[in-house]
Amino acid sequence: MEKRAIFSNRLLPYLLLAPQLAITLIFFYWPAAQAVKQSFFIEDAFGTTSTFVGFENYRTLLADPYYFKSMGTTLVFAAAVTALSLSLALLLATQADKSLRGAGLYRTLLIWPYAVAPAVAGVLWLFLFQPGLGLAARQLQRLGVDWNPLLNGAQAMTLVTLAAAWKQISYNFLFFLAGLQSIPKSLIEAAAIDGARPARRFWTIVFPLLSPTTFFLIVVNIVYVFFDTFGVIDAVTGGGPAKATETLVYKVFSDGRLGGDLGGSAAQSVILMLIVIALTSVQFRYVERKVTY
């Protein structure tokens, strides 16, 4: 049954909602509206005048090969981070789900990385893999790998992928563990009696039953990679070398803040906003009412 509060004063409910609405309006809708507005203007180099140009900023953007390169970089980055963090988290979760001694401690330790700020995580990985300085980098060079993410774009991408995925493993781990624990034990036992070996039990019973969790995590991880990895990229590579790790969000920053192209940057923000809206609606539509298996 839905609970309905009855207010004697008709204004009271609006008053109670007002603080939250004010915060949302000032900190979310106002900047968003500003960005939309700005995307139709071009500012002069000193920021003193701005000229209305209609869709000019968008036209320039969609004709810019760098924009599509950045889009491609983002997609590769998103796919790599999501695949890596999900598969590692699932592996760890299946291990933590076993009744082992010290399972509680193991789980707690696995959750810790989530509490590390993205920039700190980035710096951590940066130090580890800094050529000539980092512990891991030295090992790689000793093994004969020509490791230099400062020059090699693919290696830089690998590094930010590792850093971004590492941050996300904890979160994915928690959800996978909860998902695993909600699968009735008797199903696994029934499958064992039905002659399925552990690997087959996992792929034919456990994995399909986890699909709602997996789907939810894929969406959340893509959103994370698209929008929350700015700190990691800024700390590790700054978008380089040669824009090899410049994702869409990072490009907004480098074009607008560093390049001074506020209008073009605003247009990029608006496109990103549309992507968030699309992803969120996918999530609400499918995740909220659960994936049917």
């Binding site: 029934a190 064992a192 039953l209």
Partner: peptide, 18 residues
């Protein structure tokens, strides 16, 4: 269990829901 040549019916049926 799989090599014991048995079949089991569980209290909650344990049917594979998917």
């Amino acid at each position: 269990p799989m090599a014991r040549d048995i079949a089991m019916v569980f209290q909650n049926y344990a049917l594979y829901p998917h």
